[in-house]
Design a binder for these strands. Structure first.
Lengths: 261, 261
DNA sequence: TGTCTATGTCCAATATATCGTACATATGAT
DNA sequence: ATCATATGTACGATATATTGGACATAGACA
């Protein structure tokens, strides 16, 4: 019930899909698990999971860790991820930009992207405040819950947006229902304005700012965000937006471009 | 003829294994390739490669990039790799240690690990010299070609070492043959001494220093290395070794330990 | 024009991967 | 002692994934 793997009932799952379901599951659990536990929690046949886990262990994609036969993501994944990061060399500039933003505003600055059909924080820099606001990086969050979400799906048509976002993700953490048409209207508005800001819907004390970061072809590849206390956000709105836009413009110079190509 | 996937002839390859063969191949090529090219270069059936590439694209493991239908490693791999890095939180301390080492010695400092049955540079910090010595990170190199290699296989028995290292890797870049027994003797010597140094066999002007970094269970998880011009290396041998050992001791305090567990 | 290579799609045959089930063991509760 | 649960292994049946080859298209070249 986590990923997109159901389709019709009574069908066999493909090994590759299940394998990556296991990897994603471990990623979100953020801890080593026994094959048995994995099978139970993702609702897959135990024998299949044992088979796949052994295959992945042999390939270095999973590793034994934590004892008792528990497994977690393996070193090979680190190497592959590093190769991706090296190819699309956004990290270095991104880090510098976030640091600059956080210094300038004293607020928490984030770089966010889509992970499949969810939103995720890729990099974060906490602001210089006595009480700092931070989030877990790498966690998947429903797109409609976030300011960035309004920008990250802007390249899709209305219908594509509805197909792309799982319907249950329009149910907000407050258990309120966000009408998809309302969301789409906000997407179009954000697209035209070039930014989106609102009082966060995942809590009651933060205000969020998001501006788009575009890739070579002009598509929105990610967003730069500020997460601030509500009063600060409202008080400094214009200045913060200006900072964000300038930072994004810098990033757009040399964004997700390949180093060698 | 690249990975370990042949076994007997006439057998079908398992999708999962081939998939990771494709990923590793792209990683080492360090560029986007067409499915057709991938198939030709790894010697796999074209139809299989197209099928697998499409599956991997759907999962975000591969991405279209570079145009003309070329594919490269995808964002999902970055997320998975980041989760690994987060779990085994060696990166931050490692980076600081390397910086310190490079400052102290003005030489190039590296952190190296095994990638399957090859050696690879995980992190590197270039020294402060007019002519700096550097290497590609993430590239696979035969274990016997490197100083670190003597330490990274020290936990294996003689026979296990022979089984682990592909025989052709004892053929040095100079086309000389390194007798496996000689290599093993060097491994045992390095193990006892707690370091290994030599004039590099991959070029004619560098001297290499390597000391082990151990994980919680005392196994060698990686190495810290210095790569220096030969004369500097010989002249400062004792000091450099002392720096390395001190740095490794620092890393061993909080090495590849899980943050939450 | 005809021929070659490079590229991608489609399809049927069969080798095999997935999955249900049974089995083995340990641990803890009743 | 008996039962229930958690964990890992073994194996056969069958749904299907892998594969070779046919087919289509486009460009290069002579």
């Amino acid at each position: 019930m986590d990923a997109v793997q159901d389709e019709a009932a009574g069908k066999r799952a493909r090994g590759l899909d299940r394998a990556f379901e296991i990897l994603d599951f471990l990623r979100h659990k953020r801890q080593a698990l026994k094959p048995n536990e994995i099978a139970a929690q993702i609702g897959a046949p135990r024998s299949s999971v044992y088979e796949l886990v052994n295959l992945l262990l042999r390939n270095g994609i999973l590793e034994f860790t934590g004892g008792e036969g528990r497994v977690y993501l393996g070193r090979k994944l680190y190497f592959l991820g590093a190769a991706y990061e090296n190819h699309f060399d956004f990290t270095r500039e991104c880090e510098a930009t976030l640091e600059h933003l956080a210094d300038e505003t004293r607020e928490t600055a984030q770089f966010c992207m889509l992970d499949g059909n969810k939103y995720t924080v890729v990099r974060m820099r906490e602001g210089a405040r006595p009480f700092r606001i931070s989030t877990d990086i790498g966690q998947s969050v429903p797109i409609p819950w976030t300011a960035s979400g309004r920008l990250l799906v802007a390249h899709l048509s209305d219908q594509e947006i509805l197909n792309f976002i799982p319907p249950e993700d329009f149910r907000l953490p407050s258990s309120e229902w966000l009408e998809p048409q309302t969301f789409i209207a906000e997407v179009r508005h954000a697209e035209r304005e070039g930014f989106f800001t609102f009082n966060s819907i995942v809590d009651s004390f933060t205000h969020c700012f998001a501006v788009p970061v575009r890739d070579d072809e002009g598509h929105i590849a990610g967003t730069l965000c500020l997460v601030t206390p509500r009063d600060d956000g409202l008080a400094n709105r214009d200045r913060y937006l200006a900072c964000l836009k300038k930072a994004a413009a810098d990033l757009n110079q040399t964004p997700t471009r390949q180093k060698r190509a």
